[in-house]
Nucleic acid binder design. Structure first.
Lengths: 227, 227
DNA sequence: ACCTGAACACCGTTCAAGT
DNA sequence: ACCTGAACACCGTTCAAGT
C-alpha cells in the first residue's frame, strides 16, 4: 500500500510461497489457508502463485515435505533403540510446532495412496535404523505397524493440555461431567492430585508420550531377543 | 423432478440429515460433503437443514456421535484384556467403514479442545474396563496414552492396502523407488514374498493391527503384574 | 511469451421478503 | 410463525484479454 518502487520486495519463488503458506497455517490453522490469502500475504495477485505450484494439493504436498525436512537426521553412532527414540522425539517436536500437519498428511493418504517423497524418505531411514540394529525384515515390518498404529482409533492428543484454548462454551458443567463420565473424572482428578497441579490438566504430555514410546521399544527389544 | 404430490417423501429430521451426510461422506469423502449437496440429496432447499443443525461444524459433531454409537458396547463377562481387545477391534471395524472419520475428529480436537459426548462416553467406558480389571488409576492413565499415541507421528495406515485406488500417476517408477528408498523396497519385497501374494501389497493389515494391539496389551499386563 | 483481471462454478450463512 | 429465495462474502481455478 505504501510500497513505492516498481521492484518487488523479493522475487517470488516456490520456497517463498511454501514458507508463507506454512506460516499462515501455523497461525490460523489449515482452514484459514487459501490461495488468495497466501497471495495477499506475499503482496501478489492470486494467479501468480500458479507459476510455482500446480494447484492447492500440490502446495500442501510441498508444505508437508518442508516440514518433514525439519526432522533431525538419524544419529550415526547410536544403538537402534536410542536412534529410533531420538528420531521419533524429533518428529514429535516438529509436529508440535505444526499441529495442523498430521490431518493434512492423513487426508492426502486417504485421497492419493502414496506419501510424499520426504515422508517416504523418513520411513525408509527409520526402517534402516531397525535393520542396522539387527532386526530381521519381517520383524521390522511388524515394528513399523506398531509405531504407526493408533489403537484407540481417534484419541490422538485427547488428553493434551489445551489450557491455552478458551474453554468450550458448549461443554457440560463439571458436576454433570462427573455424573456422566465417572471413570474419566476419577482419572482426571487422580492425575491432577498426583502432580500437585491446580491449573491445567496436570498431565505431562511429553512424559506420557515417552512412556508409550518406551513401552513399545521395550516390547520390540524383547521380540528381537527371542527371534 | 417426477415427484407429483405436494407431500414430502418423509418429514425432515435431524437423524435423516445426519444419516444422509454420513452416506455422502462414505461415498465421496468429507471434501465432497456440503450443505448444499446434503440438501439436494434430501430433495430440500439448503436452508431447510439449518432447522435441524446449527451449522456445519455441529453437523460434523452429530455425524461423529452417530458413528461412535456404532461401536459395540463393552463385553460384560470378560477379563480386561479380551474386553479391551474386542472394543478396540470393534472401533477399528467402524473406522474402516467410515475412513474419513479420524481426520474429522482430529480436526475438531484441534479447534475445540473437547471431544463430542459419544467420544467421551467411549473413553469413559474404556477406562472403566481397565479399572474393573484391577489397574490402579495412574496406570490406566498411562495405558490410555499408550493406546492413543501414534509414535511415528503421521504414518497411520501408511502400509494399508490401497489396491482399490488407481495408482498415483505422479509416483516414481519402481526402479527409481528401489534406488531412493532401499530399505522400504526391501521390506515391501520381503512382505510380498512371505505371503506368496503377487497382487496387492501382500500385507495383512488386520493381522498387523492385532500384532500391535497384542504387543501393547502384553506390555500393559506385565506392568500390571509388577505394580 | 509472460502476466493478470474478470469470470465461472462452487461454498457456508445471513437476512429480508414471502406465505 | 414458519419457510425460503436472493444475496453476501468467500473459495480454487480457467481463460481470454492485455502487455
Amino acid at each position: 500500500m505504501v510500497e513505492i518502487g516498481t521492484q518487488q520486495r523479493a522475487p517470488l519463488s516456490r520456497k517463498r510461497v511454501l514458507d508463507t503458506a506454512v506460516a499462515l497455517a501455523d497461525e490460523g490453522g489449515v482452514d484459514a489457508l487459501s490461495m488468495r490469502r497466501i497471495a495477499q500475504a506475499l503482496g501478489v495477485v492470486p494467479m501468480a502463485l500458479y507459476k510455482h505450484v500446480a494447484h492447492k494439493n500440490e502446495l500442501l504436498d510441498g508444505m508437508i515435505d518442508a516440514l518433514v525436512g525439519e526432522i533431525d537426521p538419524p544419529s550415526a553412532d547410536a544403538d537402534w533403540k536410542t536412534a529410533v527414540r531420538r528420531r521419533v522425539l524429533s518428529a514429535r517436536r516438529m509436529l508440535l510446532r505444526h499441529p495442523w500437519a498430521p490431518a493434512v498428511i492423513e487426508a492426502r493418504m486417504k485421497a492419493r495412496a502414496t506419501p510424499t517423497p520426504a515422508v517416504l524418505a523418513y520411513l525408509d531411514s527409520m526402517i534402516g535404523i531397525f535393520r542396522a540394529g539387527g532386526f530381521p525384515v519381517d520383524l521390522v515390518h511388524h515394528a513399523m505397524h506398531v509405531m504407526g498404529s493408533r489403537l484407540l482409533g481417534f484419541s490422538q492428543e485427547l488428553f493434551e493440555d489445551r489450557t491455552d484454548r478458551a474453554p468450550d462454551p458448549d461443554a457440560p458443567p463439571p458436576e454433570e461431567m462427573a455424573a456422566r463420565y465417572p471413570h474419566l473424572t476419577e482419572l482426571a482428578r487422580a492425575v491432577a492430585h498426583d502432580e500437585e497441579s491446580v491449573v491445567g490438566s496436570g498431565c505431562d504430555d511429553q512424559a506420557e508420550f515417552e512412556f508409550a514410546l518406551d513401552l513399545t521399544l521395550d516390547g520390540l527389544e524383547r521380540l528381537l531377543r527371542t527371534a
